[in-house]
Amino acid sequence: MCRNIHQLHNFEPPATADEIQAAALQYVRKVAGATRPSQVNQAAFDRAVAAVTAATAELLAELTTNAPPKNREVEAAKARARAEQRYAS
């Protein structure tokens, strides 16, 4: 998985439309191998982002779990701690 795409399922509050769209954009960029498509490819790029956004939103709406929702701040603190340990000099 692309390192910049974060888990969106089972958080309180739920993932926003902006978070879902940002994850879709990162996915399409990774698959396309470019952060900015050429003018000739822009329409295809935009359609792909829209399709992945819709599919992701549908998936998140249908997923169920018995696990309690995760807290965004707690998970962010854990990620920062892992990063500090990983990049400590």
Rank of each mutant, 00 (worst) to 15 (best):
P14W: 13
V31P: 00
R3Y: 15
A61C: 05
R72S: 05
H6Q: 14
A67Y: 11
V40R: 08
A83H: 09
V40S: 15
L63P: 00
N4L: 14
I5C: 08
A15N: 00
A34R: 04
H9N: 14
A88C: 09
P14Y: 07
D18I: 09
Q26P: 04
G33C: 02
V40H: 15
A76L: 09
V49C: 00
P37C: 01
P68L: 13
E62A: 11
P69T: 10
N41E: 09
H9P: 03
V28Q: 02
E19M: 02
A51W: 10
L63M: 12
A43N: 04
Y87W: 14
E75H: 03
P68C: 09
L60N: 01
A34L: 13
Y87T: 12
N66R: 14
Q7W: 12
K70R: 10
V28A: 01
A23T: 02
T16L: 05
A23S: 04
L59G: 06
L60M: 06
N71F: 06
F45C: 00
T16W: 07
H6P: 03
A22D: 04
D18C: 06
N4A: 10
Q85E: 13
R72E: 04
K70A: 07
T64K: 12
A79E: 11
K30Q: 15
Q42T: 15
K70M: 12
V49M: 01
E58T: 12
P37D: 01
T56P: 00
K78E: 10
A51Y: 11
P37Q: 02
L59R: 08
Q7H: 15
L25D: 02
E19N: 01
T35S: 14
R86K: 10
A22C: 04
R86G: 03
Q42A: 12
R36G: 07
V40Q: 10
A17F: 09
I5P: 00
V40E: 13
A76Q: 13
A55H: 12
L60W: 02
P13K: 08
P69C: 12
A83V: 07
A22H: 06
A50I: 03
A15D: 00
A32S: 05
G33F: 07
I20Q: 00
T35F: 14
Q39V: 13
A57C: 02
L25S: 09
Q39E: 11
